[in-house]
């Protein structure tokens, strides 16, 4: 097994990690870096529980080879709140009651954050589309959609 030394910026911090060639980004986050907020729901890119933001895009970290992340910038759920303040999508999903068992929540929040970063004024369709790869079995989704919509409104109001 060949190992690769990669340098990544993760949640704002530079890290150097030695990873075997077959390790996924999800395995690296959970097993090498102890960032267990990112969840493993299927390990085959189908449920979205392992979503992180990689160079600005929401990706299923179970489908990314860690060795190919050299030089990448990665944000995980642990890095979403900054200096103790919850991100707007975190605040709004709490206010709207969009969290039950919480297992899909990290992935949904990362998909939502990536959406609002690239599209600050999403339509309801945009929101549903952006999280359609994040399966949730508890909530029925509507409160999550409302939370993301309200987060977008609050952020654009703050910009004005």
């Amino acid at each position: 097994m060949s190992f690769h030394r990669i340098t990544i910026r993760i949640n704002g911090n530079l890290e150097q990690v030695d990873v075997p060639g077959n390790l996924t980004l999800l395995q690296m986050l959970r097993d090498k870096l102890g960032l267990t907020g990112t969840k493993n729901g299927c390990a085959s890119g189908e449920c979205g529980a392992c979503t992180v933001i990689l160079n600005g895009d929401a990706v299923n970290s179970c489908m990314v080879v860690a060795a190919e992340c050299d030089g990448a910038e990665i944000t995980t759920i642990e890095g979403l709140a900054s200096s103790g303040d919850l991100d707007m999508v975190q605040k709004m999903i709490l206010e709207e009651g969009g969290v039950q068992c919480g297992f899909c929540t990290p992935g949904i929040l990362m998909s939502a954050r990536a959406l609002l970063n690239r599209n600050p004024h999403p339509t309801e369709f945009d929101i549903r589309d952006a999280i359609s790869g994040n399966l949730c079995r508890c909530t029925g989704y509507n409160r999550i959609v409302t939370a993301i919509s309200r987060a977008a409104e609050a952020e654009s109001a703050a910009v004005k």
Binding site: R30, G34, L35, T36, G37, T38, K39, N40, T76, I77, E78, L80, A81, L86, Q90, I93, L94, G97, V99, G102, F103, T105, P106, L109
Partner: peptide, 21 residues
């Protein structure tokens, strides 16, 4: 009232079985 189990679920701090080291 606000739920008492959800703050750690939105920050990644909630511990599920597979998260125990």
């Amino acid at each position: 009232v606000a739920r008492n189990d959800v703050l750690e679920k939105v920050t990644g701090g909630a511990t599920y079985t597979d998260d125990i080291q």
